[in-house]
């Protein structure tokens, strides 16, 4: 799932810096974002998750198995419900292919549809493949450090550089003061209005790390709708063959 949550979380981070010394009392904005990035960092990841999508017209739950390797290779396979079982999404660099078992065909998502929803969720196809080069595209600074909603948090405001080709006008990353675990990310459009909010919750021990197991995305224009991803199981740095991330393996 590296490329979904990871990318989204790491949208203005993703610096492959040296691990930050955990003992230091005060971290700067960049170091905090590195910490957030470290939460999901791994050469590879594999696991299972549940995606629950709530819209005005329907609610559904997908069970998904995922594999990811490096920064830009991942594969997601739907395990349930039955209608979509076996539907697989392959992401390599900026490309997305979907395998549809019902018609036994692989189709590539055209660039015109990259802004469209992925599997009916509130994630766009673009969200899945946007890489962490965002670090080059944003400047960031600590904009808040104190108590908010009875929690001690730090907020980092990320503003895109003038020449950066990005869709967001601003992103605010909120982390817990003492753990530096992400709690909330707020995305603003180019008019600096809130476009969507992502909330991290249910911090748990998984695969020897402390990570938020649940991420919920809420579109600002449809506040009653949401997509929630819950990690049921995750393992980092597991050996995965490169061949898994190929169109041939999609059809298997």
């Amino acid at each position: 799932m590296k490329n979904t949550i990871l990318t989204i979380a790491g949208i203005c981070l993703g610096l492959l810096s040296n691990p930050t010394p955990a003992s230091s009392a005060e971290l700067d904005a960049k170091q905090i974002l590195d910490r957030v990035d470290d939460v999901w960092r791994g050469d590879s990841a594999q696991g299972k998750m549940t995606m629950r999508v709530v819209t005005a017209h329907w609610t559904r739950e997908l069970k998904i198995e995922f594999w990811s390797k490096g920064k830009d290779k991942s594969l997601m396979r739907i395990l349930a419900p039955k209608k979509e079982m076996g539907t697989t999404t392959l992401m390599v660099e900026h490309n997305i292919w979907n395998y549809l078992p019902k018609v036994k065909r692989v189709i590539k998502v055209p660039s015109s549809m990259m802004g469209g929803s992925w599997m009916g969720s509130h994630f766009t196809n673009d969200d899945l493949v946007k890489d962490s080069r965002m670090a080059d595209d944003y400047t960031f600074e600590i904009s808040f450090n104190g108590k908010q909603d009875r929690k001690n948090v730090i907020e980092i405001t990320c503003i895109p550089n003038e020449d950066a080709a990005v869709v967001w006008g601003k992103i605010i990353v909120q982390v817990e003061q003492d753990t530096y675990l992400p709690t909330k990310m707020t995305y603003f459009n180019e008019d600096l209005e809130v476009a969507r909010t992502m909330i991290f919750s249910d911090v748990r021990r998984m695969a020897d790390r402390t990570i938020p197991a649940v991420a919920t995305i809420i579109p600002a224009d449809e506040p009653k709708e949401s997509t929630t991803i819950t990690y049921d199981d995750i393992a980092f740095d597991v050996p995965i063959q490169d061949g898994l991330f190929s169109k041939r393996s999609l059809e298997r």
Partner: peptide
């Protein structure tokens, strides 16, 4: 041709 759509019930509709 393969069609892939978001069906009215939220599922992924696909057909040849």
């Amino acid at each position: 041709l393969v069609a892939v759509v978001q069906a009215a019930d939220g599922s992924i509709g696909n057909e040849l």
